[in-house]
Design a protein around this nucleic acid. Structure first.
Ligand SMILES: [Mn+2]
Ligand SMILES: [Mn+2]
Ligand SMILES: [Zn+2]
Ligand SMILES: [Zn+2]
Lengths: 142, 142
DNA sequence: GCCTTATTGAAAACAATTGTCAATAATGGC
DNA sequence: GCCATTATTGACAATTGTTTTCAATAAGGC
């Protein structure tokens, strides 16, 4: 429980007037260090290994604050939309392993011309876009 | 309750051994004719205007069958992922109005080179992609 | 260290969805 | 058209995921 992003998140929470408690530190460390998307229930399961008394409600409340501070983002998948992962710096998109949830950010989509065309053709003002790739990570390809 | 796609969906249900009942016909007509994404509760509200006795459960069950036959697809949005809309023919993506839910399909993304790059760089086998645009439709721009 | 007040965990409340079941009605065969 | 079979319906209960309530606890500024 002592790497860069964990401490950074803790500082940001503290800077926003939130208190740094033991259960909160653990939830934050788990999510900040995870390379894969995690649901609240999964975070809870992992957190209990380190702090058996922690309640699922505390996990929800901590995730809520992290999302509010844009430190994490919700991840939508065909199977459900209840997972979270550390937010990207800047504009990036996710590539997610369908098997294990391992996630990587990428950038470099070139959607502006397409959005311009579609906007013109449909009369919509396009404000936002979602792009996500799904596949199998190196390990899960076997 | 008598346009092309409605009748087509009814035939397909029938062809798959499902019975054509009054409540089912109404749910199907509502979803088949809708230009905007609808949640189960919204479908239920609309359906009750035509068939007051219809239960929400019947709406869920009908949507389930329509999804199973790939006649509708679930729509994910920042605010929630419980909406449905008529499925696209072929590979297309959605542009959705953030205000009223009016939806249009588009195609023409050119993501193959990007997917090839990302796949090579990360070691993932990319199997699927999601792309969605969000904005304001002509009416909702005021 | 002390005091204020945010935070915690347990339990209850909510909301969305799914399962159970007896009554009803669609369908295919006659 | 009429019947028997059996899928479907709606009311209600059960689940699941999430939020609220509340008294007890413990951060953190002083
Ligand atoms: Mn982009
Ligand atoms: Mn595409
Ligand atoms: Zn994997
Ligand atoms: Zn609109």
């Amino acid at each position: 429980m002592t790497t860069s992003s964990t401490d950074d998140w803790l500082s940001q929470l503290h800077a926003n007037g939130y208190r740094l408690t033991a259960p909160r530190r653990i939830v934050i460390d788990i999510v900040a260090q995870s390379q894969r998307v995690l649901s609240p229930a999964e975070v809870h399961r992992l957190a209990r290994k380190r702090y058996p008394a922690i309640g699922l409600v505390t996990v929800y409340r901590t995730l809520e604050k992290l999302e509010e501070l844009s430190l994490i983002q919700r991840v939508h998948q065909p199977g459900g939309c209840h997972a979270f992962i550390a937010a990207a710096e800047g504009h990036q998109h996710l590539l997610i392993c369908q098997q294990c949830g391992l996630a990587e950010y990428f950038s470099g989509d070139n959607l502006d011309p397409l959005m311009a065309n579609i906007g013109r053709d449909t009369g919509y003002i396009i404000k936002e876009h979602w792009l996500q790739f799904f596949g199998l990570c190196e390990d899960c390809r076997k």
